[in-house]
């Protein structure tokens, strides 16, 4: 039922996007696949791209298709098989897909697609209830080292970015990542209730999701996962607390396999123009996404590294069999 409505809501968003964009005549006709139901992060990214592509005059028309299922496993399979060699198609993907493909033993992998660029990222936060004795990331590290089983983390789906972060946190403070007691909840709402009610030790989520709770003082943020402090956010990073944990929930865009170097160049240039447009910047500001544009080979390299890192973590927590 939820995804049902999410899909419809997406359709609604699409309508808004369409009506909001002036129809400038241009050369490209693009198809962007969101390998998820409408409403979620990937879908919103695809719709935002649609809006910016058209508004900036890079493309004449952009069609967004949704192929939902299993963290993108269904979508990428259709993309790799159905869009091979097509220079007018793109697919949105992100951190979660890396883990989902590994966990679902997908026959199609991210190595098969042609990387174009990373677009955005969202910083992760660890929170504790306001009345928790844990005040800093080091306090949490100390409890983990004392008895890892008793430290419960609440977050999103198993193998998702929150789960990976719990394991990485434990690993980087010298605890056994394998023994992390991570409790997945469906959606941010339920895990939030569990944290507020003090049922779990700590909660992990994207920073924006718990922003209101942190500001109102119901939750205490003990650290964020960015490289350095974020302007306007009064939360220390893990790094400055002496914990080597940098992680972001990134989203990127890829092209089908088997496209020619020229086609890849055209798509990359189109994406670059789109990212540099005012329309895109406005959307980022409006949605509260951080610009994390990383094009070309640098992105391909990044994708590979993340793939290795996530797969290793999931193997260490036993979600993926080596």
């Amino acid at each position: 039922m939820k995804s049902f409505c999410a899909r419809l809501f997406g359709a609604v968003v699409a309508l808004m996007a369409l009506t909001a964009s002036p129809g400038l005549a241009q050369q490209m006709e693009l198809k962007v696949m969101a390998p998820a139901a409408p409403g979620g992060g990937w879908d919103q990214t695809a719709r935002a791209m649609q809006q910016a592509f058209v508004a900036s005059g890079v493309a004449r028309s952009v069609q967004v298709t949704n192929v939902a299922g299993a963290g993108g496993t269904v979508g990428i399979a259709q993309f790799v098989n159905g869009a091979k060699g097509d220079g007018n198609q793109l697919m949105v993907n992100g951190f979660v897909m890396v883990g989902a493909l590994a966990m679902n033993k997908s026959p199609v992998t991210l190595e098969q697609v042609t990387p174009i660029a990373r677009l955005t990222e969202e910083i992760q936060v660890i929170v504790v209830p306001a009345n928790s004795p844990i005040k800093t990331a080091q306090d949490l590290a100390a409890s983990l080292k004392a008895d890892i089983a008793k430290v419960t983390f609440a977050g999103g789906s198993a193998g998702g970015v929150d789960h990976v972060m719990a394991a990485l946190f434990a690993g980087s403070v010298g605890a056994d990542a394998k023994k992390v007691n991570y409790i997945p909840f469906s959606g941010g709402g339920e895990s939030l209730a569990a944290i507020l009610g003090g049922k779990v030790t700590a909660g992990i989520s994207g920073l924006s999701e718990y922003d209101g709770q942190i500001k109102s003082g119901k939750l205490r943020a003990i650290g964020i996962s960015s490289e350095s402090r974020i302007p306007g956010v009064d939360i220390p990073t893990f790094k400055e607390q002496g914990i080597d944990l940098v992680l972001a929930n990134w989203r990127s865009v890829v092209a089908p396999p088997g496209i020619t170097p020229e086609q890849k160049k055209t798509l990359s240039e189109a994406v670059e123009k789109m990212v540099k447009s005012d329309a895109w910047k406005d959307i980022l500001k409006q949605k509260g996404w951080d610009d994390a544009y990383l094009p070309g080979d640098a992105f391909a390299e990044f994708l590979k590294k993340e793939n290795v890192r996530v797969t290793d973590v999931l193997k260490s927590v036993g979600l993926v069999k080596s």
Partner: peptide
């Protein structure tokens, strides 16, 4: 997919 461990149940390989 089992919500707590991410393992597939009764999916018989159909994504």
């Amino acid at each position: 997919i089992d919500k707590l461990t991410g393992q597939a149940r009764l999916a018989f390989g159909v994504p």
